[in-house]
């Protein structure tokens, strides 16, 4: 018989599998594939690198997300001071895939690549994502500016804010 079955692990894996980045065809809810996002960010994309979520970094990310990140490592693309990240976080029930470009420690742009929830789609709109431009990370790992919420999209807004903080923290770590 099984010694242990990790339901959380299963749920996280399921969430990641549901939100697999890089699908070639633009399925329902997918605005841009991660490949297209990287291609647009870097006309000649650098080779992807990975950062492992271990030790203090893992703990800090867990604190930001309020749960462990689904994967043990995160892929990123970096050229000069610019880095690009494709991250997933569950809004209410399904993963939201977000592409974040960071330039010199500040968010250059944040884009919702895939939104699979039935509500809260407003977070995809530029009027909302523009608020993240030039946002940085304070010492307490919070954004250095206020992001106005959207009525009826509280969980999606929260997910995007968490991913923005996570991307900035990861960027800080690769620049150390």
């Amino acid at each position: 018989m099984m010694r242990s079955i990790s339901v959380t692990r299963a749920a996280l894996l399921l969430a990641v599998l549901l939100g697999l980045p890089g699908a070639t065809a633009l399925a329902r809810g997918i605005n841009q594939t991660p490949d297209a996002f990287i291609q647009e960010t870097f006309p000649r994309p650098p080779k992807p690198k990975v950062i492992w979520l271990t030790g203090d970094l893992k703990k800090e990310i867990e604190k930001i997300l309020q749960h462990p990140y689904a994967k043990l490592r995160v892929k990123y693309w970096k050229k000069g001071d610019k880095s690009a990240w494709v991250l997933d976080e569950i809004g209410k029930e399904k993963p939201i895939t977000v592409g974040v470009i960071i330039n010199d420690g500040k968010i250059a742009s944040l884009r919702v690549l895939a939104f699979r929830e039935s509500r809260g789609w407003e977070v995809e709109q530029p009027f909302f994502t523009r608020q993240f431009t030039q946002a940085g990370l304070r010492k307490d790992n919070r954004l250095d500016r206020n992001i106005d919420g959207i009525t009826g999209a509280t969980l999606s807004v929260r997910a995007l804010k968490k991913l923005a903080r996570m991307a900035l923290l990861l960027d800080q770590n690769i620049r150390k």
């Binding site: 990790s6 894996l13 599998l17 070639t24 689904a70 994967k71 043990l72 490592r73």
Partner: peptide, 22 residues
């Protein structure tokens, strides 16, 4: 190998990463 993806796992079954295929 699962569907349109290649999933990397630790020997304990923890998800490391996933890579999608065309």
């Amino acid at each position: 190998a699962s569907g349109e993806s290649v999933i990397l796992l630790t020997p304990d079954g923890e998800l490391i990463d996933s890579i999608t295929t065309s």
